[in-house]
Computed example of a mutant assay.
Amino acid sequence: MELSITLTLNGAMRTVGIDDPRITLLDLLRERLDLTGTKKGCDRGQCGACTVLVNGRRVNSCLTLALSCDGAEILSIEGLAHGDHLHPVQAAFIEHDGLQCGFCTPGQIMSAVGLIAEGHAGTDAERIREGMSGNLCRCGSYAGITDAVLDAQARMAPQDRGEAA
């Protein structure tokens, strides 16, 4: 029995057949839709490498059933930039060396975009570290990540923050 869901993925309406109701959003993105920017780290919701935005909220896609996203708006790392124009968070990560190996970077960036859009980033580094605590970096790029989030938030106009997600 095949089910289908309709969702808006990176701005485009998609209808996707689901042959197994247990498939996660992460596996749907990576294996069925070939959007491999979202990473499978722990596959248990502990590392944040799979973070995407669902209806503007940060979620661990490895813990989210794809069927639960029927009708939802999904934003993955592939939908963040506009052509060659990087999102302010992406640009800030590059400028502040908020990455080393890069494996966690898509999840870190999506979490930062969500944190800013939710209005929870503030201007305090400790608040940002707390807000990003669900995203782990094995290389230890936390200082650059925090600086990138601070910089991106300062660059983004208040109306852009809500539109970031």
Rank of each mutant, 00 (worst) to 15 (best):
A12D: 13
A12P: 03
M13T: 15
M13S: 14
R14I: 08
R14A: 12
R14T: 08
T15G: 01
T15K: 07
V16M: 06
G17D: 13
I18L: 13
I18F: 06
I18R: 01
D19R: 14
D19A: 14
D19S: 14
D20Y: 05
D20F: 02
D20V: 02
P21L: 04
R22S: 14
R22A: 13
I23M: 13
I23F: 01
I23A: 09
T24D: 10
T24S: 15
L25M: 10
L25Q: 11
L25F: 10
L25W: 10
L25Y: 09
L26H: 05
L26D: 03
D27K: 12
D27P: 01
D27M: 06
D27R: 14
L28A: 13
L28R: 09
L29C: 08
L29R: 00
R30Q: 08
R30W: 05
R30Y: 05
E31I: 01
E31D: 15
E31W: 02
R32E: 14
R32D: 15
L33E: 07
D34P: 05
D34I: 00
D34A: 14
L35N: 02
G37D: 05
G37V: 07
G37S: 11
K39G: 02
K40T: 07
K40P: 04
G41H: 08
G41V: 05
G41C: 06
C42W: 06
D43L: 02
D43Y: 04
D43I: 04
R44G: 11
R44A: 13
G45T: 05
G45F: 03
Q46P: 00
Q46E: 15
Q46L: 12
C47L: 10
C47F: 07
C47I: 08
G48L: 04
G48Q: 06
A49L: 03
A49F: 07
C50W: 02
T51N: 10
V52H: 05
V52D: 04
V52F: 02
L53Y: 07
V54E: 03
V54S: 08
V54F: 02
N55H: 00
N55Y: 00
N55W: 00
N55R: 00
N55L: 00
G56P: 01
G56M: 00
G56Q: 00
R58V: 10
V59Y: 03
V59S: 04
L63Q: 09
L63P: 02
L63E: 02
T64E: 13
A66S: 12
L67C: 10
S68R: 15
C69W: 04
C69V: 13
C69Q: 11
G71Q: 11
G71I: 10
A72S: 15
A72E: 07
E73W: 05
E73L: 06
I74E: 05
L75K: 15
L75Q: 14
L75E: 11
S76Y: 06
S76G: 13
S76I: 08
G79T: 11
